[in-house]
Amino acid sequence: MELWIPITLVSAFLQNLRSVGQKHLKATMGTLGATFVRFAFGLPFALVFVSVLHWGMDMSFPHLNRSFILWSVLAGLSQILAQFLLIHLFSFRNFAVGTAYSRTEPAQAALFGLLFLSETISAGVLAAIAICVVGVMLISVAHTPVNPRSLVTSVFQRTALIGLASGTAFGVSAVGYRAASLALGGPNFIMQAAVTLAFTLTMQTIVMAAWMIFVDRSDFHRMRKGWKPGLFVGATGATASFGWFAAMTLQQAAVVKALAQVEMIFTFASAVFFFREKVNRLEVAGCLLIVAGILVLVLMG
C-alpha cells in the first residue's frame, strides 16, 4: 500500500472529529469564532510539529522561496473563502443543493491540477472521482425533497452557484497547498508538509484575527471561555491538515481529495451508531458509491 493512502484515511478520520468539535463550539462561539478556532488553536500544534521534526529528528528547515509564499497565500485565502461560502449556504432554506455542489471539490481539483501544474490523471482515477462525487452528493441531499434529477435542473440556482464556488475555492486551495509544499524542494515530504502548515496557519490566523477585530471583538471573549474544546478542535484540525499536506506532497491533490471522501462514511457511521439517527436509501446508496469509488481509485488509480 502506498504511504499516502493510510495518511489520507487517518486525516479524514481526524477531520471528522474536528468537525464534531466545531459543531459544538458553534453553539457557544458563533460561526466566525468557531471558524477562527480552527486556525488559531491549531497554530501552536503546527509549530510543535516543525520544532519536533527540526530539533528532535534533526531535519533541516527548507528555504521559503517566492513560489512557496505565493502558493501558500493563494491556498490559505482560498480555504477561508471556501469555508465562508459553505457556512453562508446554511442561511438558505434549500442549502442542501449548494452543499452537494460544494462536494465537487475533487473533480475541480483535478481540473486545476491540469491547468496550474500540468498534471494529468488516468481514466481510472477520473471514474473514481466521478463515483465518489455522486455518492457524496446523494448523502448531502438525502434528508431533503431534493432528488438527483433536481440537482441537474437546479444548477443555475443561487445556492447551487454558491456551492460550486465553494467547491472551486476548495479545489484551488488543495492544488495550491500541493504546489506550495513541492516548491520547498526538501528535505522530505514530512518537513515540507509541516512548514507549509505552520506558514499558512500563521497567515490565516492573522487575517481572521484582523477581520474579527474589525467586525466583532466579542468573539475573543467567548473563545477564552471555551478554550478547552477549542484545543481539541485545534489539535485534531492541525493534525488532519498535516496529514493532508503530507499526502498531497506525495500524490496529486485530486486523487487525495477523492479518497478523502471516506470522511462522509465516518460521519455517516457516527450518526448511526452514536446518535442513533435513522438512515434512508439515498444515504446507503451514497455510502456504497463512495466505497465503490475508493475501490476503483485504489485498484485502478
Rank of each mutant, 00 (worst) to 15 (best):
Leu25Ser: 12
Met29Phe: 02
Met29Ala: 14
Met29Asp: 10
Gly30Thr: 09
Gly33Trp: 02
Ala34Leu: 03
Thr35Gln: 11
Thr35Glu: 02
Thr35Trp: 00
Phe39Glu: 05
Phe39Gly: 09
Ala40Glu: 03
Gly42Ser: 15
Leu43Asp: 06
Leu47Asn: 14
Leu47Pro: 05
Ser51Cys: 13
Ser51Glu: 12
His54Lys: 15
Trp55Glu: 11
Trp55Tyr: 15
Met57Arg: 14
Met59Leu: 14
Pro62Val: 13
Asn65Gln: 07
Asn65Glu: 03
Ser67Leu: 13
Val73Asn: 07
Leu74Pro: 02
Gly76Met: 04
Ser78Gly: 15
Ile80Thr: 15
Gln83Asp: 13
Phe84His: 07
Phe84Asn: 06
Phe84Leu: 09
Gly98Lys: 01
Gln108Ala: 08
Ala109Phe: 03
Leu114Tyr: 04
Leu114Val: 00
Val125Gln: 06
Leu126Lys: 12
Leu126Cys: 14
Ala127His: 03
Ile129Cys: 07
Ala130Glu: 08
Gly135Pro: 02
Gly135Val: 04
Met137Gly: 12
Leu138Lys: 09
Leu138Asn: 10
Val146His: 10
Pro148Gln: 08
Leu151Asn: 02
Val152Arg: 09
Ser154Gln: 10
Gln157Phe: 00
Arg158Asn: 10
Ala160Gln: 09
Gly163Cys: 08
Gly163Ile: 03
Leu164Trp: 02
Ala165Phe: 03
